[in-house]
Design a binder for these strands. Structure first.
Length: 485
RNA sequence: GGCCCGUUGGUCAAGCGGUCAAGACACCGGCCUCUCACGCCGGUAACGCGGGUUCGAUUCCCGCACGGGUCACCA
């Protein structure tokens, strides 16, 4: 078994969509391993058949791969410590639990659920913290043997120390100490012979050689129990790295239920996987320097546990937008065109337009891809517009000057044989010089006439080039007609 | 409720006894400019509260408040 170096794991349950908090935990586990040249392992924890969701494993695979988190060992590719699907590891747990019974760290418990429930109700009524009352804790060997022989259903429980304290060190939270009397004699092996998550997790992590356990802070309070288990087995305790939760607002954790916090929802809206990952890295972790935009390779170099914060962070859509915009702008035009095309095509059905020209004006104006369709909706059809649009104080234009300007522009454009952005630009600016007017005096009316909108990606020249000669001239004539009324 | 954890601008956050308390997003102004956007320049805005310790606390200690987590034969 190759277990040298740092080994981390991501151990999701296939219960549905992957939300960003989950993905962030996976990212940190990945970065922890990769920043140390270590091994990143994927383990599927599918022991809860009731919550199992069809296709959820594929979602996990796809999300991780798209996000660039490639595992070195996992269910699909195998590895030295497999199987990597928890349900296939079931046979090993019981003997570990029996070993603990043998050494006095665990015991058989024959209490049925009814009795347990009774005890719980009683404890609650008298204001005591609900906890197993130790009924079977000190059964004699004979009693146990007898019940076992009689096929009495049983579970195996961990025997917690009655007094003293248990401490552990967490890399982000520091030293945490709890009183042992608050620890419940938790169940290790259920009546059906299957391990509980808590037990399977410890055994799996150890047998898979995990050196750094990275998980959500909700496991902070059960960690002392895990440690007691490690100690009982005489196993080396892993380094713990607990991450604070990602919040939806000040009081609610991000949930898959409401909202769109899942990774695939974000992608569907037009966020780039790399941008999502970059933003997530920043949510709850701070790099040493001022840089915020990182490639995955840079993140691997930069990542350090000391930068993980202790307090919950609220998921901020605005900052994600910014990071996404940053990624979009960094793309080579050709690549941006490729990813923007399906979005452009939502509103631009015309085949005779150069979508590259459209992509070019869109690139610096798009934060999220889903903003594209609305921006280019005027290309297929000129919207109805009010001539008041021609009035622009700063451009020093109004309906009269605009009519004049459009009339001057018309023959110039009509005379253009080569109708490209460059030639249009050249022709129009020559006209501007000839007329001795301000750029906006001429160009603002053109932009309005060809777009019918107050705001557009690109200016009049660029839009004419996109629309083509015929359509541009038709629209300008339409403008002249409107203004002549 | 018991136990554990947390609390710096609206948000993400740096800070680790002495700082004019970084930076980013957002917001507001300006410049650039054929609109919008990009880009550039500038601005507003924060240490939860109360006690200690100390020459000096955002930093250390104790309470309180608020928030989160956890108390299953779920994971």
């Amino acid at each position: 078994m190759k277990t040298e170096g740092v080994r981390t794991r991501f151990a999701p349950s296939p219960t549905g969509y992957m939300h960003v908090g989950n993905l962030r935990t996976a990212l940190y586990a990945y970065l922890m391993a990769k920043s140390q040249n270590g091994t990143f392992i994927l383990r599927i924890e599918d022991t809860d058949q009731e919550r199992y969701v069809e296709g959820a494993v594929d979602i996990i695979y796809n999300t991780l791969r798209e996000a660039g988190l490639f595992w070195d060992e996992g269910p699909d590719i195998g590895g030295p410590v497999g199987p990597y699907i928890q349900s296939e590891r079931m046979s090993m747990f019981k003997k570990y639990a029996e070993q603990l019974v043998e050494s006095g760290h665990a015991y058989y418990c024959f209490c049925d659920k009814d009795r347990l429930e009774e005890v719980r109700v009683l404890q609650k009524a008298s204001g005591i913290a609900p906890k197993y009352d130790g009924h079977c804790r000190n059964l004699s060997k004979e009693e146990v043997a007898q019940k076992l022989a009689a096929n009495t259903p049983y579970v195996i429980r961990q025997k917690m120390p009655l007094e003293g304290t248990t401490s552990f060190h967490d890399e982000v939270y520091g030293l945490i100490t709890v009183d042992n009397d608050t620890l419940d004699d938790q169940i290790l092996i259920k009546a059906d012979g299957m391990p509980t998550y808590n037990f399977a997790n410890v055994v799996d992590d150890h047998t898979m050689g995990i050196t750094h356990v990275i998980r959500g802070s909700e496991y902070l309070s059960s960690t002392p129990k895990y440690n007691l288990l490690y100690e009982a087995f005489g196993w080396e305790i892993p380094t713990y790295i607990h991450c604070p939760p990602v919040m939806k607002n000040a009081t609610e954790k991000l949930s898959k239920r409401n909202g769109d916090a899942s990774y695939q929802d974000l992608v569907a809206k037009g966020y780039l996987p790399a941008a999502i990952v970059n933003y997530l890295a920043l949510l709850g972790w701070a790099p040493k320097g001022e840089q915020e935009i990182f490639t995955m390779d840079e993140l691997k170099k930069e990542f350090s546990v000391s930068g993980i914060s202790k307090s919950p962070s609220i998921f901020d859509g605005q900052k994600l937008d910014y990071v996404n915009a940053e990624y979009i702008r960094q793309l080579p035009l050709e690549q941006f065109h490729e990813i923007a095309l399906p979005w452009i095509r939502q509103t631009v059905k015309r085949e005779d337009v150069d979508t590259r020209l459209i992509a070019k004006v869109l690139q610096s104006r798009t934060e999220v891809l889903n903003q594209i369709p609305e921006q280019v909706d005027f290309i297929d059809r000129l919207p109805e517009y009010d001539t008041a649009l021609y009035v622009h104080k700063k451009m020093k234009t109004n309906e009269e000057t605009s009519l004049e300007a459009l009339k001057a522009v018309l023959p110039v454009l009509e005379g253009l044989e080569d109708f490209t952005e460059e030639s249009i630009h050249e022709a129009l600016f020559r006209l501007i010089a000839d007329l001795g007017v301000k750029n906006g005096y001429l160009l603002w009316p053109v932009r309005v006439a060809v777009s019918g909108k107050q705001f557009t990606p690109g200016g009049g020249v660029e839009i004419c080039a996109i629309l083509g000669k015929d359509e541009s001239i038709t629209r300008i004539r339409k403008g002249v007609a409107l203004l002549s009324k």
